[in-house]
Amino acid sequence: MTLVRRAPDEPELFAVLFRRYGRDVHRFVWRRSRNDMLADDITAVTFEQCWRSLPGFRPRGATVRPWLFRIAANELASHYRSEGRRDARERLATVRDEPLRAPSDDVAVGSDDAALLSALARLRERDQIVLSLRFLADLSTEEAAEAMDVERGHLAVLQHRALAALRCELEGSQR
């Protein structure tokens, strides 16, 4: 924790934080998005946010790791929200000029991972975050609870509900 306290005054120590946690944050974002460029961008923004917030950061736990994952999860959710709004605007702009067509029958999910990520993307944001932190970022229950700013017992309830919602999404997509 001394590293975090000293990093705002000694930028070379911030580089140590990046080397220690950068790969894990990048891997977490990549596992959610399967997009190298997006993972690079979100990782950079995460550490930029971290740098700007370090002077006022007061950790509840022993490490800065859960906080970094919370920043990354929030940035990724923000990206998908803005991407969804942009896609909706583009669809609305073109729908007037297109004839109505039935969906193509030849579209198929390529792998179990793709189906899982697709189902995960259809969940509520909070469900996506809890499952991503626990299973894609491999955070412990304590770390995920800290990242979400909830008690450990509350995280267990959130995780249970999110897994149930994911199960329903997966079963619905197999019909």
Rank of each mutant, 00 (worst) to 15 (best):
M148K: 12
A114W: 02
G22M: 07
D106K: 04
P66V: 09
S111W: 10
H160Q: 14
E98R: 13
R32K: 13
R34K: 12
N35V: 07
W67L: 02
A121Y: 07
Q49V: 05
Q49F: 04
G172T: 11
A121C: 06
R5C: 07
R65M: 05
A162V: 00
V25K: 03
H160T: 11
A144P: 05
D87A: 04
R161G: 00
L68S: 03
V107Q: 04
V45F: 09
G172V: 05
P8T: 05
L123F: 08
V109M: 14
E146C: 00
R122I: 01
R101M: 10
H26Q: 11
G153N: 04
F135Q: 05
T141Y: 13
R60N: 09
V150P: 06
D105Y: 04
V109P: 11
E125G: 08
L92D: 12
T43D: 12
L38Q: 02
I129Q: 13
R23P: 13
R5V: 07
T94K: 14
G84T: 05
C168Y: 10
M1C: 01
D97N: 04
R91G: 04
Q174M: 09
A7V: 13
S33T: 12
T94H: 07
R167L: 12
D149P: 08
T94I: 15
C50P: 06
E151K: 10
C168P: 03
P11N: 10
E12P: 15
S33M: 08
L155M: 08
V45G: 02
L139P: 05
G61H: 11
R52I: 12
V4S: 09
R86D: 10
N35H: 04
I42Q: 09
E90Q: 14
A144H: 01
A7M: 08
L68W: 01
R6P: 03
R23G: 12
L163D: 03
D24F: 03
